[in-house]
């Protein structure tokens, strides 16, 4: 009986002392946005283009890293405070400002509550007015290419791909069929057309997702047009 009493006291004391908060609040401010060039969204491959956020003033400095999704969106859940945003060297199908002293430039961001900030970059190329439709068991696409960077940093086109997939993730790694056009065979940047045969899909479905990607010579990540769902 007495033992039980002590046990009761003991648990009450533990329970009471646990009421005190023992941890920080979880980060609650969302920073989000997307990659844009003059307001036009830039598509990339899912999980392949990383970005980094740095917050200094708390001892050792390390990046908070994540990557863009395939539509070029990003988001991060952060504490309020001052951050610097950057994209690591050699990542993304676009140019990022370099500092005169060398190294990548950073964008200063003050996070105070939820906020949206688009990341303005200079892509080497843009895919303009892509039109995609299915006919005769094929997906046909027409589009124009705009060469954005024309100065000393300009790069050639290695190849252009039209990818289709049965899910909404469409890229070189995720596709069921693709058509390829070598960069050397492009004579005009306007009214380009490509088509790809839709293979048998199991289980059957009457739609595919498609998009066009440009592989820029010497740049690892491809730049993509927006994903379209195509019924057939």
């Amino acid at each position: 009986m007495k033992k039980l009493f002590y046990l009761l006291i003991f648990t009450t004391v533990i329970a009471a002392s646990s009421c005190k908060k023992d941890n920080y609040k979880a980060p609650g401010s969302t920073l989000k946005g997307r990659l844009v060039y003059k307001g036009d969204p830039i598509g990339v491959e899912y999980n392949q283009v990383p970005f980094e956020l740095y917050q200094s003033g708390f001892g050792k400095v390390g990046p908070i890293g994540a990557s863009f999704d395939q539509d070029g969106n990003y988001s991060a859940l952060l504490f309020d405070g001052n951050y610097r945003f950057t994209i690591p060297a050699g990542q993304g199908p676009f140019m990022w400002k370099e500092r005169a002293t060398g190294g990548r430039d950073t964008i200063a961001i003050t996070v105070n509550g939820d906020q949206t900030m688009n990341i303005e970059v200079t892509p080497y190329y843009m895919i303009r007015s892509p039109q995609m439709a299915a006919s005769g068991g094929k997906v046909n696409a027409t589009f124009n290419i705009e060469k954005v960077v024309t100065d000393a940093n300009a790069k050639g086109i290695e190849r252009v791909n039209l990818y289709i997939n049965k899910t909404q993730f469409v890229s070189g790694a995720d596709n069921i069929a693709s058509a390829e056009m070598a960069g050397s065979s492009i004579t005009s940047m306007n009214n380009l057309s490509m088509s790809v045969t839709i293979p048998t899909i199991s289980p059957t479905q009457n739609y595919v997702f498609a998009r066009i990607g440009i592989k820029i010579a010497g740049v690892e990540d491809m730049i993509f047009s927006p994903v379209q769902k195509i019924q057939f």
């Binding site: 050792k60 400095v61 390390g62 060297a89 050699g90």
Partner: peptide, 15 residues
């Protein structure tokens, strides 16, 4: 953890 402990370490390319 290595770059934070030693700021003189430069990062690898493309990372």
């Amino acid at each position: 953890d290595i770059t934070a402990a030693n700021p003189k370490i430069v990062k690898q390319p493309n990372q």
